[in-house]
Amino acid sequence: MDTLSYLFQLVLALVLAPLVPGIINRVKAKFAGRRGKPVLQLYYDIAKLVRKGEVVSDTATWVFTAGPVVSMVTAVLALTLLPLGGMASPFGFNGDFILCAYLLGMGRFATVLAALDTGSPFEGMGASREALFGAIGEPVLFLSFLALVSTAMSMGIPSTEVSLSSLFCGFSPMAWVMGRPEIMLLVAAMGVLLLVENCRIPVDDPNTHLELTMIHEVMVLDHSGPSLAFILYGASVKLWIFSALLAGLLLPSMSVWAYTLSMLAAVFGVAVLVGIIESVMARLRMPVVPALIGLAGAVASFVLILTLVR
């Protein structure tokens, strides 16, 4: 029953994922005083793209085609490790957060290779930046996880059961908030990671088509048709993953349906928040981004040390 119910949550997440970018765009449009695209725009886009043919560069090889596929699959696989709707993932296991991080890494790896495969200077540029931010983002993500692990273990979760599920919905997060206010700082750190990993402003600007400023969008310039659809979909799943992690940190435990609803609310809330941030902030200069990631890392390690000292 639990598994079925989890599968339902999973399907819900997979179906609703393209909604998140829609919400963000809508919020941004409102801030700019425009009417904006429909919230379901991404669904339309994907539906249109899968019906189209593809144009592939002369230079490209199978690596180019594999990129979107792998990045989408890894995002979906990573999602299955997450606790959804207040339920532990049946696929989770001790240490699965390591696998989760590396799955996302694999997706990035494939995307970057696909970008390099075209031989385009612009895509090379994006690839270079993505690779770097991925490389330095990974330890920060781990620092955040570790802070949670350390807290969890000090609160009695045995080390053989440290998984994403136990960390993000194992017990009442309110208890964390009451007993461990420093956890709230982690929310900030993971928020930064969300922006970085999903290439949002202030790290990246998904909207402009001035290639010199972009990271993710520029890498996928050459993709078209179903491949592009895979990419768009994969990106939205990834956004969902990070939003769900944040939500898992924040939400208190409650009944499944209540949790499901509040989780959806939280995910969309995060989307709104991202939309607001994108609207009120300018993109950072490229050399400043690592400093931002470093800042997030500093916050996370501060939290880690706090939890250890207790």
């Binding site: 189209k52 043919g53 144009v55 592939v56 596929v69 075209t118 048709g225």
Partner: peptide, 17 residues
């Protein structure tokens, strides 16, 4: 899935954008 989606539509080759 990609192959099915592409179906009989041709995959055009062209220079890199």
């Amino acid at each position: 899935l990609r192959r099915i989606l592409l179906g009989r539509k041709e995959v055009k080759r062209g220079p890199t954008w």
